[in-house]
Simulated assay, not measured.
Amino acid sequence: MRIYHFDKSQDNKKMAHINDIRRLNTRRLASEAGGPANFARKVGFTDSRVSQLIGDKFSRNIGDKAAKMIEDAYGLTHGWLDIDHEKRKSAQEDKTGHILDENEVNLVYATNKEITLLTKYRESTAQGMKLIETAAATSEKDVTKIRSIKAG
């Protein structure tokens, strides 16, 4: 589930394309990391891939999967790379939480199943929440192993 932030002010025609916003934000993170090589190591990308994504002569856009990897490596909330931070007051505000002003709206795209699960989670007791979190952290490999133990 990705969260997208859109500016609904009058100048939204001037908004940069999502690929440009992601590239600018990623370049800023690379700069803060001490350069593309340090950034590549932190995120788990090759130097070549970083050059393709944010170099002066970039040849690839930063897709959802790469954006998630970058956000996870930096401990950022999902969707952070999609926000035009130049309009924000400070980088610290951006990294600690998305504070929406009167000209922004926060849209979440989720399936009905995801919304139902989130609703059930929010309605749960603390014990129920812990059970849901444990189930969510269980990999398919673990589920297969549990099934084979039960069957055997």
Rank of each mutant, 00 (worst) to 15 (best):
A136H: 07
L131E: 14
L76N: 04
E140T: 07
L29V: 03
I62Y: 01
K89F: 11
I70G: 04
I83Y: 06
L117K: 12
V143W: 00
H17F: 00
D47P: 01
D142R: 00
E32N: 08
S31L: 07
R2L: 12
V108A: 12
A110I: 02
A151L: 10
L107N: 11
H98M: 12
A67Q: 01
Q127I: 10
I149W: 09
N103K: 03
L131I: 14
T46G: 07
A126T: 05
H78W: 00
G34D: 04
Y121T: 04
D7I: 04
K8Y: 07
D47L: 06
N19T: 09
R60G: 08
K113L: 14
T26W: 03
E93M: 12
P36H: 04
S139C: 05
K14N: 15
A33K: 05
V105W: 01
R41K: 04
R147F: 03
M69A: 07
T144M: 15
E104C: 00
R41P: 06
A30Q: 01
I70D: 12
I146T: 10
E86V: 04
I132T: 00
A91Y: 08
I54G: 09
V143S: 11
E114A: 06
A151P: 13
M69T: 00
I3D: 09
R122M: 14
Y109F: 13
D11K: 07
W80L: 08
I99M: 15
K65S: 10
A67M: 03
T134Q: 13
E71H: 03
N106K: 05
K87L: 15
R2T: 12
K8I: 14
Y4C: 12
G152K: 03
L100C: 04
S31Q: 10
R27I: 04
A73C: 11
S31W: 10
S139T: 11
N61Q: 09
E114F: 08
D142M: 11
G44H: 03
R122W: 11
T46W: 02
L81C: 10
I132Y: 05
F45M: 09
K57G: 01
A73L: 13
A135R: 01
R49H: 11
L100R: 01
E86M: 09
Q10A: 13
E71N: 06
Q52N: 06
D64G: 03
E71F: 01
D142K: 10
